[in-house]
């Protein structure tokens, strides 16, 4: 079992903080978000910083990155600072 964690602002759109899933890859989760929560949620999820166990998918295989049991996929708001 894997977990999807939602942060602001996506959290406000899907109206939950997290949920369990059995999906196998980032791509599958993105498809799921669109189907279950609509276009706005999908756009927000796609433009978020997507992390698996708090590490960016950009450091693995992007959207093709597989999800293994126990993994937590998170959608973080994009930002920066000093």
């Amino acid at each position: 079992m894997k977990t999807i964690r939602y942060y602001a602002p996506l959290r406000g759109i899907v109206k939950k903080e997290s949920e369990a899933t059995e999906l196998g890859s980032v791509k599958d989760v993105l498809r799921y978000v669109e189907k279950a929560y609509g276009k706005e949620a999908s756009v927000c999820a796609k433009s978020a910083l997507i992390v698996i166990n708090d590490v960016s998918i950009g450091l693995s295989q992007g959207a093709k990155t597989p999800l293994r049991d126990g993994d937590v996929i998170g959608f973080l708001p994009v930002c920066g600072g000093g």
């Binding site: 708090d54 590490v55 930002c79 600072g81």
Partner: peptide, 17 residues
């Protein structure tokens, strides 16, 4: 981003990379 999270918002970004 900056008004919402301040520079503190960087913690998760740095961690992610």
């Amino acid at each position: 981003a900056l008004p919402n999270y301040g520079s503190a918002g960087l913690v998760s970004k740095a961690n992610a990379t």
